[in-house]
Simulated scan of single mutants.
Amino acid sequence: MNEVLEYLFFTSTIADKFASTLQDNGLEYIREIEPMQGATLLKIAEGVDEDLWDTLDELYDDLSTEDQALLEEGLVDEDAKSTAGIYLQLSEGRQTIAQIDPDVMNRMLSVITMDEFNAFIETIVRNVETPDDSAICQRKPN
């Protein structure tokens, strides 16, 4: 698969539901276990019909909510501390999670969208991986 769409699930039950829909629609997929979190990653080729892609996107949104609820049910622990992390995809293919203060994360997401937050993080990762020592006023906007 050259260009792929990736769908991440934290519970195998929900990943199986999504995989079943992929099979029902005749889509081939690759199933991987994400090494950092042990989550299930389903990958399909990017050339999916637009209507089907919209259907899959809506299903993924619905299943993600269910997935999160199941995950939280399994993680109920009175002594547990609240944590948050940012999933980072590095240029050479490595993946990592940066742990951050959950209160800071909640405050940020109360004033910006998740897309804006992701764009911000991608800019930081890109600039760390390929630093530019020129003056900020001389750089082209990203």
Rank of each mutant, 00 (worst) to 15 (best):
E6P: 15
E6V: 12
F9P: 06
T11V: 12
T11K: 13
A15C: 12
F18D: 15
A19D: 00
S20E: 11
S20T: 13
T21K: 07
T21M: 11
T21W: 05
Q23F: 03
N25S: 10
G26R: 08
G26C: 14
L27P: 04
Y29N: 01
I30H: 12
R31A: 11
E32Q: 09
P35N: 02
G38Q: 05
A39M: 09
L41A: 06
K43V: 00
A45E: 08
E46R: 06
V48P: 12
D49W: 09
D51A: 12
L52N: 01
L52A: 00
L56G: 04
L56E: 07
D57Y: 12
L59S: 09
L63Y: 00
S64N: 14
T65I: 11
T65A: 06
E66T: 04
D67R: 00
D67C: 00
Q68T: 08
A69I: 07
G74Q: 06
E78W: 11
K81W: 09
T83C: 04
T83Q: 06
G85P: 01
G85S: 02
Y87K: 11
Y87M: 09
Y87T: 15
L88W: 14
S91L: 14
G93H: 07
G93F: 10
G93E: 04
I97E: 02
Q99A: 07
D101W: 00
D101F: 03
D101Y: 00
D101I: 06
P102C: 03
L109G: 13
L109Y: 04
L109D: 05
S110Y: 06
I112C: 07
I112R: 09
M114P: 07
M114S: 08
F117D: 15
A119Q: 14
A119M: 10
I121T: 03
E122C: 15
E122N: 12
I124M: 11
V125Y: 03
E129L: 12
E129G: 13
T130P: 00
S134T: 04
I136K: 15
I136N: 15
C137K: 11
R139V: 11
P141I: 13
N142T: 15
